[in-house]
């Protein structure tokens, strides 16, 4: 315990050159890789590696809502289950939901509720499953970002994708996308998610200590990063679904349908080029 306090006092999270422990500048994201359509059984799925985070997201539905009394005769439910694998953290996490996962599941469900066209699917449920396989701070943002791609992969109609990123404060400096050490020893953490097309904020949490100016700076960093992440999400979907003229000509007969069995979300949601 003494050791930890000692480290806490001594630990410098930002070096004299302004670089963070992992060499990033204050407004730099960790490396992100997104892959769409990675699971066979799920209606839609995505995998994301975000720094040291490895997160899988799967979507089922719209399907009959269970338990039945939850069914809404006017619209679909959007239900999320965020779960951490017992081996995803350094001290084994007891399996099953704890208070933290329940809260995260709730705020993510609410974030997606505002973009899914729920009125089109009365009495059903859109079920989103987020599994954190390896955690390194920022798992809810990684999970939300992946789940968003999984929803598109499932063909669930949405106003837009949701893109998410956290900012925080370390050594008194507002920084983008904290890693585990920065989160543990930093001063504040503020995860958020936006609908990039409108700029609507659909998830916002914060703990720690930020002045109003610092908060605005953090939001500025996060919004800017979310727009970059949005492009990565769209890229992942394009890689999964895009078909070039060459691909089509290679198919024989030339009139054969595109080799995709899954429905693609309507074109206008993703701009004129589709996904």
């Amino acid at each position: 315990m003494e050791d930890i306090e000692h480290i806490e006092k001594e630990m410098k999270l930002i070096g004299s050159d302004g670089r963070r422990l992992d060499g990033r500048s204050f407004d730099e994201l960790r490396p992100i890789r997104i892959e769409a359509g990675v699971l066979r059984r799920a209606d839609g799925s995505a995998y994301i590696e975000w720094g040291g985070n490895k997160v899988l997201a799967a979507v089922y539905g719209p399907r009959e809502a269970h338990p039945r009394h939850l069914q809404d005769p006017a619209r679909a439910l959007v239900q999320c289950r965020y779960n951490m694998a017992p081996f995803s953290v350094s001290d084994r996490k007891r399996p099953g939901p704890d208070r933290r996962s329940v809260e995260i599941s709730k705020v993510i469900s609410e974030a997606f509720s505002s973009v899914v066209f729920k009125e089109q699917f009365p009495r059903t449920s859109v079920d989103i499953f987020i599994e954190v396989l390896q955690a390194d701070a920022g798992t809810r943002c990684a999970g939300l970002t992946a789940a968003s791609v999984a929803l598109a992969d499932a063909g669930v109609p949405m106003r837009d994708l949701v893109a998410s990123c956290a900012s925080g404060k370390i050594d008194g400096v507002v920084c983008l996308d904290l890693n585990k050490d920065e989160d543990n020893f930093g001063d504040a953490d503020c995860p958020m998610a936006i609908v990039p097309r409108t700029g609507d904020v659909v998830l916002l949490q914060m703990d720690g200590h930020l002045t109003y100016d610092e908060f605005q700076k953090a939001m500025g960093l996060s919004i800017d990063a979310a727009r970059r992440i949005y492009e990565m999400q769209r890229d992942a979907l394009r890689r999964r679904y895009s078909v070039t003229l060459e691909d089509i000509l290679k198919e024989s007969p030339p009139t054969a349908p595109v080799a995709e069995e899954r429905p693609v979300t309507s074109e206008e949601d993703f701009g004129p080029e589709g996904i």
Binding site: L39, R41, A42, S45, L56, A58, Y60, R63, R81, N83, A85, P86, P95, D127, F129, E131
Partner: peptide, 10 residues
């Protein structure tokens, strides 16, 4: 222990 997480199957 085994977890049959709902992601894996409907």
């Amino acid at each position: 222990s085994v977890e049959l997480i709902p992601m894996a199957s409907p």
